[in-house]
Amino acid sequence: MSIIKGKVYVLKDDIDTDQIIPANFLNLVPTIPEEYDELGSHALAGLPDSYQPFMKPGENKAEYAILIAGRNFGCGSSREHAPVALGAAGVDAVIAESFARIFFRNCVATGEVYPLEVRDRLCDVFSTGDEAEINIEENTVVNKTTNKTYKTLPLGAAKDVVDAGGIFEYARRAGLCS
């Protein structure tokens, strides 16, 4: 995938994995299809009440395809439930000033979402509900609501892994495993 379009949901700094998927939902197993879907319905359920709800009650797909955040997105736990919950909710990409290491790697390994870094503090110039378009080949994100364009940092080899749908599928296509 090289173009991602949709509504954005904006978050600030240090969004940790407990906010992305609270620990009481870790009894769900991501590889069981119905539990994968249910994880999606709880995506970002741990956000403080100062944020508007990410999910509508009773739904398991969000109206937002893109998250825009500040520094250190995905800090905390190694729970793969976090990128899975976002992917299951229909999020295609997270754009942040920086990512916590394990979360970034889990995004790539699972192929659930594209983790894209930016130098600009986009979480201050995008508003929740803005329409945006990401071009991963050209490393840009356009705010369709304000018509401003920003640069994202190249995802490099990790792009091919997310494109393939995760590390195993990538490895098979690349002939690294059977």
């Binding site: 905390g76 793969e80 990128p83 394990i102 790697r105 889990n106 590390i167």
Partner: peptide, 26 residues
Amino acid sequence: GTDSHTCTSGAFGEFSSGIGNTDAGF
């Protein structure tokens, strides 16, 4: 280990780090 606090084991002079399920499955 599939837990971010796997880094605890580094107190013993070893390399230890947390990973996700997919990496752990590999």
